[in-house]
Design a protein around this nucleic acid. Structure first.
Lengths: 185, 185
DNA sequence: TTAAAAAATGTAAAGTTTACACATATTGAG
DNA sequence: CTCAATATGTGTAAACTTTACATTTTTTAA
């Protein structure tokens, strides 16, 4: 989705505004990717676009709004054809997201407050578009020290139930500053 | 150094133009970092800046031009105070350069056609601002397979002389596309 | 002939990553 | 009450990578 920058706002603010207008979402993680400025990229008039990616929990958005603005969700492996240099933007955003995922924690933005290891693993498998080994994944994540294991279980997906975790906010923020390397090939 | 974007050029082209105007350099490696757009960043008028970093072989620039435009060179650990959000831009650029250095080859842009291992190591030590172990560095670099060892020696720095290398252009380009991880802590 | 100076070279130990399979807990059905 | 079904939870050995580290080689100028 796109929009135009106003006089009294920064690009970050504009990105927040446009996203909110079309989804109703607030407090979303947004990150600038880069500026696209080829002279003829928009055949009608000179346009410079600055792209962002957002981490959204899709279930939380306002379905009314997306309907109203005729916005749609697509899987990365089933994208519609897009105009101008937008395909390039999308590819670049995905590359950035993947790099981000293996070097900084980004779960807060996308998981419910309490979640199972399986859910966390699913998230990474989606982002990276590859299957991960359960045991190795858990070991890597535990090593990061950003999760707190709760006494509760989620029984919605199995009879045994799976322990719930939440993020250790202090550690999470620390790792967000420092970064790490999850070393997923 | 900064400048203004013209109607008939892209940001990349503007960056090339400005750099050339102030240094006379051509065919320089330039990479966009990002757009800075806070409403009040320039107290005089609304300005959006897009920052770039360039890889320059300093010896090759036109000294007349830098003198004419009163441009100066600074070490990263001895920077002058700069206006607006430029300190942030500089920090970000350095972070990007370091990441780049350990994940993509960037020697072509900064070394003479033929160079010694020592020179290559010096380059990395400067960029990363840390001493590297000679043997480990050589092993890592050789593993990348991007160098061709020549039969010539450079005798300017020792009586024994040090073998000269050049980049294997095909391999170099391949690695530039694929990336790698030099795993320097 | 020797001294000086930088270049070239290899390995063992420590640490990390990978691949891989079975036991456990729970409950719904019979 | 028992059993079947199902997803969860757990550990290790082998392969690989990284690290730390010291001596020999080559050349020439004195």
């Amino acid at each position: 989705m796109g929009g135009f920058l106003k006089q009294n706002e920064s690009l970050d603010e504009a990105a927040v505004r446009v996203l909110n207008k079309l989804t109703g979402l607030e407090n979303v993680y947004l990150e600038q990717i880069q500026a696209y400025s080829e002279v003829d990229r928009d055949p009608v008039e000179r346009t410079i676009s600055v792209s962002y990616f957002a981490l959204i929990n899709k279930e939380e958005h306002d379905f009314e709004l997306t309907r109203k603005y005729d916005a749609h969700w697509f899987n990365f492996d089933n994208l519609p054809t897009t105009i101008f240099d937008h395909p390039k933007m999308i590819r670049r955003a995905l590359r950035r997201l993947r790099r981000k995922a293996i070097t900084y924690p980004l779960g807060f933005e996308l998981l419910p407050e309490k979640f199972t290891m399986k859910q966390l693993q699913n998230l990474y498998e989606c982002i990276l578009n590859q299957k991960l080994d359960k045991r190795n994944f858990i070991n890597k994540v535990n090593f990061l020290n950003i999760l707190i294991k709760l006494d509760e279980k989620d029984k919605s997906t199995s009879k045994k139930g799976a322990f719930l975790y939440k993020f250790d906010e202090t550690q999470y923020k620390k790792k967000s500053r420092e970064g790490y390397n999850l070393k997923i090939p």
